Amino acid sequence: MEQERLVLEVDVRVAQPRAPRRGGVELDPIDRDLEYTGSLLTLLDPLGLLGGVTVVALSLTHGAFFLALKTTGTIREDARRLGTTLGAVTAVLAVVTLGWLGLLTGSAWSWATTVVAAVALLAAVAANARGREGWAFTGTAVTAAATVATYFLALFPDVMPTTLDGGRSLTIANASSSPMTLQIMTWAAAVFTPIVLLYTGYTYYAFRRRIGTQHIPEPVAVG
């Protein structure tokens, strides 16, 4: 009897459905009640992991360009060299990631923003190589915005498309907050977004000058 129960438990575990795969990517199993039926490992598909690595690489490139923009001397030169290296790696990762996403669920609009992201990133790397860090920083900012737009346009109107027969995808409609919550958030954004933009713009203006090692004060003896 004990052996029969053990065999039954094993059979039940083996018979549990796995998320379907498309192009080697394990996708989102969401049932008709909008409940996620997968596990944590289901979310760790190759495309998702590659996308995470690409975002980290783009952030590091963006930061290197900003560091070069705000410094002088050897710090600036080191940041420029690092930005060029990171930019080349990021370009390869971005092409693979966005191209893979486009082949899976792409549309004409998402392919257009993919091209914008690629051109902006290549232009940023070229500008950095010529010592135009301001344009390089702007280029990676455009790349980040175009990448977000690509994901949105490729999935629209879905947020998490289901791959289960009879399941329901999470869309921007059924995954959104209630009308009252959206109204409160809209008014809050209308009030606080200009404030955030103002003080962010002021900080950029206040720290607009480049700095270098010569600006580090000499140590002062205490006592």
Rank of each mutant, 00 (worst) to 15 (best):
P29L: 02
A145P: 06
P20A: 05
V89Q: 00
E2A: 12
V125D: 00
L27S: 00
G223W: 15
L104D: 05
V196S: 13
T84D: 05
T74P: 04
T105H: 04
T186E: 13
N128P: 03
L8K: 13
A126S: 04
T162I: 07
P157N: 14
V92E: 11
R81N: 06
E9N: 13
A206R: 15
A57M: 06
D165W: 12
M185K: 14
V95S: 07
A15K: 10
Y199T: 09
T143F: 05
Y151V: 07
K70F: 07
E77S: 14
E77N: 15
L43F: 14
V12I: 13
V95L: 09
E2H: 13
I216T: 15
L82T: 04
L103E: 13
L103M: 15
A145S: 12
T213V: 13
V56G: 09
V56N: 05
L155G: 00
G24R: 06
M180S: 10
T147P: 02
T105I: 09
A127M: 02
P161S: 10
P194E: 12
R168T: 07
L198A: 14
V25K: 05
G131Y: 05
E9P: 03
S110L: 02
D11V: 08
R210H: 08
T163M: 05
I30V: 05
R210A: 04
P179S: 07
N174E: 11
T74W: 11
V25W: 03
S107V: 07
R13V: 06
L98T: 00
D31W: 09
A57C: 08
R18F: 14
G24Q: 06
Y205C: 10
A120W: 00
V55F: 07
T71L: 03
L122S: 09
L50M: 12
A154G: 03
V196N: 12
G52I: 02
S39D: 15
F192K: 03
P194T: 11
A127I: 01
T113Y: 04
F137S: 00
